[in-house]
Design a protein around this nucleic acid. Structure first.
Lengths: 109, 109
DNA sequence: AAAGTATGCTACGTATTTCGTAGCGGACTA
DNA sequence: TAGTCCGCTACGAAATACGTAGCATACTTT
């Protein structure tokens, strides 16, 4: 028979519930991308859509709501922008750009 | 009528195709989490499953394949481990832990 | 004022992804 | 030889993402 596996494990030794929440948020299609695009400039709904390979507006809308609720993004009359928290997140994520370059070089997608 | 929006936009000013590939990879449920867990210790298939809240083995399997193909994870007789590339990715992602703590504090999930 | 255009956003049917469970074939053990 | 563990797969169901049409609002243009 299959080993049942406990439904919810008590969080492992790699403690920190917070980071799990971040994984839930960022580990969702488009969220990182949206923030990445907003990091270089504020954008309108449709502008954001264009930058994100024409992602469907329905999904974009729910993503914006999520990111707004998470206080990473906010709306202005000029368009969507990153909050301070959002900006600081993108800063911590910044080294990823360099890593990506090395990775591409070695793995050659 | 709806504005058609070009199907595939020529990558925006925020250049870098590599980072987009990273977003595709990491912006998928479980991938970050799996690597996170493997960063603290190598794990067997079922061990990994337990750590990841009992995620379904079918998904775990496809994830492992993806990460292996991306050369971030490899298999040993002792279990799954991160490659050098995988380790360096987790290093660049490390500041995220601290950011997550601040974020949680301010937003209070 | 009427018509055109652009905006943010929603509805809704379809396609893709993820989930949950059962269970197979192999290895190792009693 | 039967029991138990393992990595992994099959497959139907649920959740998520997609694509398109189009509404309501606002601002321009004629």
């Amino acid at each position: 028979m299959t080993t049942p596996l406990p439904k919810k494990s008590v969080r492992g030794s790699s403690s920190g519930v917070a980071i799990m929440a971040v994984f839930d948020l960022l580990g969702r299609k488009w969220n990182m991308r949206i923030m990445w695009e907003l990091n270089s400039s504020y954008l309108s709904f449709r502008g954001l859509q264009e930058r994100c390979d024409g992602m469907s507006p329905s999904v974009l809308n729910t993503r914006i709501k999520q990111l707004t609720e998470a206080e990473l993004v906010f709306t202005t009359s000029e368009g969507y922008k990153l909050t301070e928290l959002g900006l600081s997140l993108m800063n911590t994520l910044d080294p990823l750009r360099e890593w990506a370059a090395e990775w591409e070089e070695k793995v050659a997608k």
